[in-house]
């Protein structure tokens, strides 16, 4: 059950990272635009940058998590293989 919870948490983390990046990008763009040009171009550019940054950081985090996940799974298998006497733990 807790393993499934970890998967669920990974997805929630990805989504929150994505949304937070878009939000921050939009915020920076909005204020830069307000102070410099006032034609919404910077806002648009930074919003797009936020989307890309969200995807980049989100996938980076997902890859790291899956790597860790695989490592722990391998360790579990090794542990199971080491003591076949009580391998149903």
């Amino acid at each position: 059950m807790f393993r499934d919870l970890g998967k669920y948490n990974m997805m929630v983390m990805f989504v929150t990272t994505l949304l937070a990046n878009i939000f921050v990008g939009g915020l920076i763009g909005y204020y830069l635009d307000k102070w410099f040009f006032k034609n919404k171009v910077l806002f648009f550019i930074f919003l797009i940058l936020g989307v890309f940054s969200g995807l980049y950081n989100g996938f980076k985090m997902l890859l790291k998590e899956t790597e860790r996940y695989d490592k722990s799974e391998k360790l579990n298998k090794k542990d199971d293989g080491a003591d076949p006497g009580n391998g149903n733990s």
Binding site: M13, T16, T17, L19, A20, N21, F23, V24, G25, I28, F46, L49, G50, F52, S53, G54, Y56, N57
Partner: peptide
């Protein structure tokens, strides 16, 4: 660089 800056600033928000 901009992606890294936005990513770092987004960390405390999320």
């Amino acid at each position: 660089l901009p992606l890294n800056v936005i990513g770092e600033l987004a960390k405390p928000i999320s």
